[in-house]
């Protein structure tokens, strides 16, 4: 009886891990690093997380998780509330609609797709912020941020893949 309950708890904790890791990664990215230049331009860890989990474990990563993570990021970094929520939701939706495409594709292809998603996300958020402020903002910093995120993608994927291997069983089996 107790074993059953523990097993159930264990399973739900594991199935919660994609959301939880994304949540913690976003928090870490908001910590002061005292590094020159960092702070104005940061790696969009939320976008990488959402991209990764939407492809590899969509069963454990519902769209509402993307919305919640976006709001969390907005509150933490002080960007307009709903901005990252919208961007992450749309990224999640775009990947979900192309899920069959990603099946069995090599890492380079996935990376390339991420680059497109990151650039589109950057332009979209730039456009929304311009609209919200009724002003033209220099898009250069936004593009730099996207490029930095694209560059950091392999490292983050390596970490997330290790985590997935350690915590979650292969897809199709029980959690």
């Amino acid at each position: 009886m107790i074993n059953d309950a523990l097993e159930h708890l264990d399973r739900s904790a594991r199935s919660f891990s994609p959301f939880l890791t994304s949540f913690i990664l976003i928090m870490i990215s908001a910590l002061p690093l005292y590094m020159p230049g960092y702070g104005q331009i940061v790696i969009e860890v939320g976008l990488v997380s959402v991209f990764y989990w939407s492809i590899y474990r969509p069963d454990l990563f519902p769209s509402i998780a993307a919305l919640a993570l976006g709001l969390w990021q907005d509150i933490l970094v002080g960007s307009p509330l709903g901005l990252h929520a919208l961007v992450l939701l749309l990224a999640n939706w775009a990947i979900m609609s192309q899920r069959n495409f990603f099946q069995g594709k090599s890492f380079i292809v996935v990376w390339w797709c991420f680059s497109v998603v990151a650039l589109v996300a950057a332009l979209l958020s730039w456009f929304v912020v311009c609209l919200l402020n009724f002003a033209f903002i220099n898009p250069l910093a936004v593009l730099f941020q996207a490029i930095l995120t694209i560059g950091a993608f392999p490292f983050m994927v390596w970490f997330l893949a290790r985590l997935q291997k350690a915590v979650l069983h292969p897809i199709g089996t029980d959690v």
């Binding site: 910590l31 002061p32 702070g39 002080g78 960007s79 730099f144 941020q145």
Partner: peptide, 15 residues
């Protein structure tokens, strides 16, 4: 003490 940074490109603020 500053406990949060990284407003990103859309907000320059600290916690």
């Amino acid at each position: 003490r500053v406990i949060g940074d990284s407003g990103g490109v859309f907000a320059q603020s600290v916690l």
